[in-house]
Simulated scan of single mutants.
Amino acid sequence: MTFDAEISALTIPEQIFVWLRLNLMEIIGAIAVLVIGLVIAGLISRFVSNALTRSDKLDPSVASLLASLIKYALWVVLGVTVLTQFGVETTSIIAALGGMALAVGLALQGTLSNVASGVMILVQKPFRVGEAITVGPITGVVQQIGLFTTELKQFDGLFVMMPNNELWNKAIVNFSRHPVRRFELVVGIGYGDSMEQARQTLLDLADADERVLDDPAPQAFVNSLDDSSVGIGLRVWCSTADYVGLSWDLTEAAKTKFDEVGLTIPFPQREVTTRAAA
């Protein structure tokens, strides 16, 4: 854009009017570039979002994130292009923006670490919304996965918000990812009781429950020889959705059935001998 030195003596409103008259075509061109660029950026963003959403390989959260990043990148390119229409030297502006981005990045290291961890969680998918997980001392159902934090609901109803950085840097146990799980029950019997009878009793209980899978087949075995009891173990496989209910029911059924067939479940006892003083 051209500024005549002679207009410097004019008042500011007059200078603005002259500047607008001299650069009318550049202004119209910049506005046209801005409008057309916004329309094209919106169309590209929607197209990318729809394409990524239809993909089965990407989580909807990842698709939304990528679409937003593409939209913001197009806005930056559009802004630089519009400034170029006005004759502004964009090299220094880009350098300044780069310096600002570096300074902000150094100041927000923790926040950016959470963002990076959030992106990795969305891409790698160690858990999804609705799955039950354990991370460190926290166990709960995933409610929402964000860029900065992940929200969990514990089984006692408490709300937990964890920074993504803590989630990504710890071992994650996902209870819901696989369709089947193994349940193991150990019941102690007296040393005078029949181990074979105890094993068969537990196997009969497993066979009688429809939730227990036939493959892998249930297993009963001697698990341990303790101080006051013999531990008889039972391993069964079931659907993940049936795990909690089956564990409760089999434990109760084992105690009831052992009482019926005369198998004792001993408990630690202590004898105290009192001696008279000499």
Rank of each mutant, 00 (worst) to 15 (best):
M1V: 14
F3T: 15
D4F: 03
I7Y: 01
I7W: 06
S8E: 13
T11I: 07
P13V: 08
P13R: 09
Q15F: 05
L20F: 10
R21I: 11
I28W: 02
A30F: 03
I31E: 01
A32K: 06
I36W: 00
I36P: 00
G37F: 02
L38C: 13
L38V: 12
I40K: 00
A41S: 10
L43F: 09
S45F: 09
R46T: 15
R46A: 15
S49L: 14
N50Q: 12
A51M: 13
S55A: 13
L58Y: 13
S64T: 13
L65K: 00
L65D: 03
S68H: 03
K71P: 01
Y72S: 05
A73Q: 07
A73D: 05
L74M: 12
V76T: 11
T84M: 10
Q85F: 15
G87H: 02
G87R: 05
S92L: 12
A95T: 07
G98M: 08
G99D: 02
G99V: 12
M100V: 15
A101R: 04
L102F: 11
L102Q: 06
L102C: 08
L102H: 04
A103R: 03
A107F: 03
A107L: 12
L108N: 14
T111S: 11
N114R: 04
A116W: 09
S117V: 01
G118F: 00
M120A: 14
I121S: 03
I121K: 02
L122A: 07
K125G: 04
R128Y: 02
G130W: 02
A132Q: 12
A132H: 07
I133H: 03
I133Y: 00
G136K: 04
I138Q: 06
G140R: 01
I145Q: 07
F148Q: 14
T150C: 05
E151D: 14
L152V: 08
K153T: 14
Q154L: 05
F155H: 12
L158F: 02
L158E: 13
M162D: 03
L167N: 01
K170R: 14
I172C: 03
F175G: 04
H178K: 15
G188H: 07
G188Y: 04
G192T: 11
S194F: 06
E196G: 07
Q197T: 15
R199W: 02
L203V: 09
L203K: 08
L205C: 07
A206T: 06
D209M: 04
D214Y: 00
A217P: 10
A217Y: 06
P218S: 08
A220V: 09
V222E: 10
N223H: 14
S229V: 08
V230T: 09
G231V: 06
G233M: 03
R235L: 12
V236M: 01
V236L: 05
C238Q: 02
Y243Q: 14
V244Q: 09
V244E: 05
L246A: 04
S247I: 07
W248S: 13
T251A: 10
A253C: 06
T256I: 14
F258A: 05
D259W: 00
G262H: 03
L263G: 04
T264P: 00
I265K: 02
Q269E: 14
Q269I: 13
R270A: 13
R275Q: 11
A278N: 05
